Simulated scan of single mutants.
Amino acid sequence: MTLPRQRGMTEQAADTAIDQACKVLRLPTVRAEFRDAASRSAKDQLTYLGYLAELLLAECDDRARRRSERRIKAAGFPRDKSLRTFEYAANPNIDPAVVNTLAKCEWVKKGQPLCLIGDSGTGKSHLLIALGTEAAMAGHRVRYTLATKLVNELVEAADDKQLAKTIARYGRVDLLCIDELGYMELDRKGAELLFQVLTEREEKASVAIASNEAFGGWTKTFTDPRLCAAIVDRLTFGGNIIETGTDSYRFAQTRARAEQAGAG
């Protein structure tokens, strides 16, 4: 598409030309902001270069935000969780400094694993989703899944002769978040398929898991002792382990609200 170029065009014609050019060049933020930015620039006595810089930086910021939103959506998180809303005071087992260091995502860049171990209601899934979200915002490809869902998908892929393709797909993401590992026993086939995914990612891309079982109890999930030991090795070697404890702060909050309602 060729746009007409004119000298000495009216302000209305200029508005129309800019609007059309922004459509062609796919600059939605510039298109939405150029009039207001022009008014601000005139008020602040910005130069032409200053005005242009303001518009282009706004476009860049908005594109970065939209990319982050797409990566977060592609991760498949079941709900929104952020580190800002995590209640450290309710769970003194968790060191804010450790979590803040993890939020910088250096462990994802290095392909290191992360294990969040603790009872239900202690913040494991919150941290898993929040740290996964931080990784997506930092530009990493992230995928969230429940352990049982992942194993079921792998079993179906194996039956359909699509296993290599499915494992490769999970191998391409920078961070794989596996939630609720340990909530149910896996048969040998399921455990072996999960082991293949972990092996595909070993020392190349990060895996973060949340489990309600300490490592000593993983034999209830992975009934073959050797396979269990190999999986624990894959998920702990050179990685980070956060123990969230046994006291459910969700239960404590519910009880506190009930006590407040009773007192009222």
Rank of each mutant, 00 (worst) to 15 (best):
A136V: 02
A158R: 12
L127T: 08
L116E: 06
L150F: 08
G121Y: 12
A147P: 07
D160I: 00
L114W: 03
T133N: 11
L127A: 05
A157Y: 06
H126G: 03
D160Y: 04
D119A: 14
L146M: 10
G121T: 13
R169I: 03
E134M: 14
G132E: 10
N152E: 14
L131T: 03
D160W: 03
S125K: 01
L131N: 07
Q162K: 15
L127N: 03
T133Q: 12
A147K: 05
T145H: 06
L128F: 06
L114E: 05
V151I: 06
G121K: 08
D159E: 13
R141I: 01
L131K: 05
T122L: 08
A135M: 10
L146T: 03
L150H: 07
A147F: 09
V142S: 12
H126I: 06
A164F: 07
G123I: 08
Y144T: 04
D160S: 11
I129G: 07
A168E: 13
T133R: 15
P113E: 04
Q162F: 08
A168R: 15
L128R: 04
D159P: 00
Q112S: 13
L154S: 10
R141W: 01
I167Y: 05
A130D: 11
R169L: 07
G139A: 09
V151Y: 04
G121C: 13
Y144C: 09
K124D: 03
T145C: 15
V151E: 06
E156C: 02
D160V: 00
M137R: 15
L163A: 10
L154I: 12
I117G: 01
T166Y: 00
T148D: 08
L150Q: 05
G139M: 04
D160A: 15
D159S: 09
G121A: 12
I117V: 14
G139D: 03
E156A: 15
V151H: 03
